[in-house]
Amino acid sequence: MGNKLETIDVNLYYGDFHALKGISMFISENSVTALIGPSGCGKSTYLRLFNRMNDLIPNTRIEGQVLLDGEDIYQIKPSKIDHLRRNVGMVFQKPNPFPKSIFENVAYGLRVNGITDKSFIGAQVEKTLRQAVLWEEVKDKLKKSAFELSGGQQQRLCIARALAIEPSVILMDEPASSLDPISTGKIEDLIFELKNLYTIIVVTHNMQQAGRVSDYTGFFYLGNLIEFDKTKKIFTNPSKPETENYITGRFG
């Protein structure tokens, strides 16, 4: 398995605030990488590097290289950013389906791409809803508003929405933090399933979750990447005392 993504000495500034301090890390293909660390340490900021969502925040400055399949995504033409985002999907912390029907939510990304073939869209919607293990629950009410779904269903809908345009990377920012334990379990199972097809980075505050779903774990603290290794190693035998303190709950 090669490196799908790589950051080389990345610094990010919000105005004067130095939010990411020289982060170098790689993400291997078809694996799940968890980002952990106390609140405000830069996990979400780091995640947003990969689909250039930080670009939308005014006064943001980025140094260093972010490679996707070996190409620096910060050197591409601005007109190619939309293309990048089709390849790198994102699931947000709070479920945020559009105020449209369940069907239209999943179809949105396809329509963005200019796809109009009705039968293709229909097939793709069904396929991704099945992938997101939501199909059985919604197949009879595809025309109903997405807002009629429960929070957990909404989040799986958002995952289906991200999958529909077949990205190769999926970024998840605390995808289960607003959900009940059962919904959380479903999302975790889903992540586990999806890693065969996608490269996944997931931010989480939940240590058990990181331990359960991820292959690699990066521990962030105050904008620094303190430690990055196989999840098994991080959780059984971390090499830095800060990491150990954090995962055993002694701070943060």
Partner: peptide, 17 residues
Amino acid sequence: DDTFRQASYALGGSKLY
């Protein structure tokens, strides 16, 4: 809500779209 705009951008939606 800004999260709707973000969701659309994250799917490759242009500003106009």
